[in-house]
Simulated assay, not measured.
Amino acid sequence: MTTKTVNKLAVPGATLHYEVTGSGPVLLLIAGGLTDGGVFDLVVGQLAADYTVVTYDPRGNSRSPYDGRPADERVDRSAEDALALIDAVGGGEAAYVFGSSSGAITGLELITRHPERVRMLVAHEPPAVGVLPDAATAHAFFEDVHATYAEDGAMVALRLFAGGLGLDEDDRPAPEDLRPEYRQAVERMLANADVFFAHKLLPFTRYRPDLAALREVAAKIVPAAGADSAEHLPARPIAAIADEIGWPVVTFPGGHTGYATHPVAFATLLSRLLESDLTG
């Protein structure tokens, strides 16, 4: 069995919970939204056969508490958190990075700010809707979700959010059908809903990537989207970014959370993409 270590890393304004599994080149997996590092549990074992896999709870989520009261998130600070983890685990070596949803936005900002520290970024469905031709409509949706949270609470906002993003169509088992440890993880992540809707939703969805900077490092970026979510809002921005940097979108199994619903096929494709850098 591959050994996992559980660690803490102090960063400005927070303490990050992170876990390290396996050996080999560092592969940082960045969770999005209200989730935490546990969302990748089903793919870690397979990936850890060839990589030092690092998962973590983004600041303010689950086991990564803020030092003080929650404040609106900054994407640049989120990218610096990712860099701090790469430094802590890999020293001076560049890392492979996979980010999903707002975790992919963190990855885009990381490679923009520190391109020399990223060997390859697989950016899976970043909701950077500012790059879309109908950006105003998309922004209005997220503003509506935020207003719904303020008026009606997290669970009502979560239903609106999931429906608008196609997440209610993901082929996920009901919480009561999950094994106890996974049910506990789902409950842990749902407890992040208040912080997410109050302080993270709008800062991340308002993020507009520096497309000129991304074109400069296009050889290191793999745009990615789920086969079942390509027409939904979270997947549309990566198609626009892919056009800008001159690469096609790689289609992963499943939808927005394919790493959880189709873990073996998802991890297999991710490994093949990373190996293309190692061999070429």
Rank of each mutant, 00 (worst) to 15 (best):
S101T: 07
A95I: 00
R113K: 15
G103M: 06
S101K: 03
A94Y: 05
A104M: 08
L108Y: 03
A95F: 09
T106F: 11
G99A: 09
V89E: 09
G99H: 05
M120S: 15
R117V: 04
G91N: 00
L110M: 10
P115S: 06
S101E: 10
V118F: 13
V118T: 06
G107T: 00
L108E: 07
E93S: 13
I105T: 15
F98S: 06
A94F: 09
G91E: 03
Y96D: 06
F98V: 04
G91I: 01
R119W: 15
F98H: 12
V118H: 09
Y96A: 04
L110S: 02
H114I: 06
G91D: 00
E116F: 11
E116Y: 09
I111K: 03
T112Y: 15
G90Y: 03
P115K: 01
V89Q: 11
I105C: 13
G92D: 13
I105L: 14
T112F: 14
L108F: 08
I105Y: 10
Y96V: 05
G91Q: 01
V118I: 12
Y96W: 10
L108N: 06
L110D: 05
G103D: 07
G107F: 06
T112A: 12
T106W: 04
A104F: 05
G90A: 07
V89P: 11
H114S: 12
E93Q: 15
R119I: 04
G91W: 00
A95S: 11
E116M: 08
V97W: 00
A95L: 08
A95Y: 03
L108T: 00
V118K: 05
A104E: 05
G92V: 02
I105V: 14
H114K: 10
A95Q: 07
P115H: 02
I111Q: 07
G99L: 03
